[in-house]
Computed example of a mutant assay.
Amino acid sequence: MAELSTLARPYAKAAFNAAVEAGELSAWSSALATLGAIIGSDEVHQFIGNPSVTASEKATTLAQLAGDDCNEGAKSLLDVLAENNRFPLLTEISAQFDLLKAEHEKSADVVVKSAFSLSDAQQKTLSDKLAKKLDREVSLTIEIDTALIGGVIIKAGDLVIDDSVRGKLSKLADAMNS
């Protein structure tokens, strides 16, 4: 069977194109995130796996559970997913939609793991340099991980910059063992 990301891609692209056309990127993002969270519930997972419930009933129920977050476009997407028995893809569709949205908006969510807390000035400098390097508006999330010993690990999508003491020691050990 194909990977979830491969199956979810056309749905995410279609949802993204509809959102751009309607000028509702944030509303779609919110709807997909809500639906992705709902689909992760054990009760909902059992419900959508129930063969005695029609596809239409499943789509309607999911839309009702999402409440006001579920716009008309998202309801149409639910109908298509129901017809093709693809509800388990909702979490991946949401993730891929958010990647397309970030690319469109020229923004990036960056996670910085540091051995110590960073001052506001350090965060500002790091944010400015990453914005320049990535050519995007950067939203930093700082996580403290004392196991790093010192330095930072920066993750922005596929890009990972490991400038931690632990990472350097690991590279040194690998070099000595080879």
Rank of each mutant, 00 (worst) to 15 (best):
residue 6 T to L: 13
residue 113 K to V: 14
residue 14 A to M: 05
residue 23 G to C: 03
residue 106 K to W: 01
residue 2 A to Y: 04
residue 14 A to C: 06
residue 73 G to V: 01
residue 77 L to N: 08
residue 168 K to Q: 13
residue 59 A to T: 08
residue 51 P to N: 01
residue 17 N to F: 08
residue 104 H to T: 11
residue 150 G to N: 08
residue 105 E to T: 10
residue 118 L to I: 00
residue 154 I to W: 01
residue 163 D to K: 00
residue 114 S to Y: 09
residue 52 S to D: 15
residue 57 E to K: 10
residue 167 G to R: 05
residue 11 Y to D: 10
residue 114 S to C: 11
residue 39 I to R: 09
residue 40 G to H: 01
residue 146 T to N: 15
residue 48 I to K: 09
residue 151 G to F: 02
residue 160 V to Q: 00
residue 76 S to I: 14
residue 10 P to D: 04
residue 25 L to S: 09
residue 176 M to T: 04
residue 35 L to H: 04
residue 77 L to P: 04
residue 104 H to Q: 14
residue 165 V to R: 01
residue 162 D to W: 03
residue 76 S to K: 15
residue 157 G to A: 06
residue 162 D to C: 06
residue 144 I to G: 11
residue 42 D to K: 10
residue 155 K to R: 01
residue 40 G to I: 02
residue 39 I to C: 15
residue 20 V to G: 11
residue 32 L to S: 10
residue 133 K to D: 10
residue 128 D to Q: 15
residue 53 V to A: 15
residue 56 S to C: 09
residue 164 S to K: 09
residue 38 I to L: 09
residue 72 E to T: 08
residue 81 L to M: 02
residue 10 P to A: 03
residue 79 D to A: 12
residue 105 E to Y: 08
residue 168 K to L: 10
residue 165 V to D: 02
residue 1 M to R: 03
residue 51 P to D: 06
residue 168 K to N: 10
residue 158 D to C: 04
residue 14 A to P: 08
residue 28 W to I: 08
residue 71 N to Q: 03
residue 158 D to A: 04
residue 65 L to Q: 05
residue 52 S to W: 12
residue 88 P to K: 00
residue 7 L to E: 13
residue 113 K to E: 14
residue 108 A to S: 14
residue 157 G to Y: 03
residue 131 A to G: 12
residue 65 L to G: 07
residue 102 A to N: 07
residue 97 F to Y: 14
residue 70 C to Y: 00
residue 26 S to F: 09
residue 172 L to E: 02
residue 74 A to G: 06
residue 128 D to R: 13
residue 63 A to R: 07
residue 102 A to D: 13
residue 28 W to R: 05
residue 152 V to M: 12
residue 155 K to V: 03
residue 160 V to N: 00
residue 123 Q to L: 14
